[in-house]
């Protein structure tokens, strides 16, 4: 199954390295360095999973999440959060995020969550197609 990921974080180094690691595992990754950029990309194409940093300058992760839920309700979102913004992670879950991961994240754990989120998305798409 091919998974398409949108990776949103204001730290360019982090996004680029993360993207390389996903790509080497045959996962398509689109990088975005701000919330605005992420939303623009989502207008153009469909993603299975969005990995979204909570703390970003400009539009913050929660606001981006809200917009994503309006734009692409089927796309699953995994929040990346510092420990201090655990509350934000929880809030994200309430807003419909699939899960949250503490920074610095363990890559394998993140990968696992991405796969499961993608599966759920696929299930939901199929269910909607049937319904």
């Amino acid at each position: 199954m091919e998974i398409r990921i949108l990776l949103v974080d204001d730290e360019a180094d982090f996004v680029e390295t993360m993207a390389k690691r996903f790509r080497i595992r045959k996962i398509t990754v689109a990088p975005a360095y701000s919330g605005v950029e992420a939303l623009k990309l989502m207008d153009e194409q469909d993603f299975d999973v969005v990995i979204l940093d909570v703390r970003m300058p400009g539009m913050d992760g929660l606001e981006v999440l809200r917009q994503i839920r309006l734009k692409r309700p089927l796309t699953e979102v995994i929040m990346l959060t510092g420990h201090a913004s655990l509350d934000a992670g929880m809030q994200g879950m309430n807003l419909g995020a699939y899960d949250y991961v503490l920074k610095p994240a363990d890559f394998d754990e993140l990968l696992d969550k991405v796969r499961r989120a993608a599966e759920r998305k696929a299930l939901n798409v199929r269910a909607q197609a049937k319904g």
Binding site: F14, R21, G82, H83, A84, K103, P104, A105, F107
Partner: peptide
């Protein structure tokens, strides 16, 4: 505040090492 600011570079280092 300190921890959070350190977490970001740590995340990058970790990913670089992972890569």
């Amino acid at each position: 505040g300190v921890a959070h600011e350190i977490n970001n570079p740590l995340a990058i280092i970790k990913e670089k090492a992972g890569w």
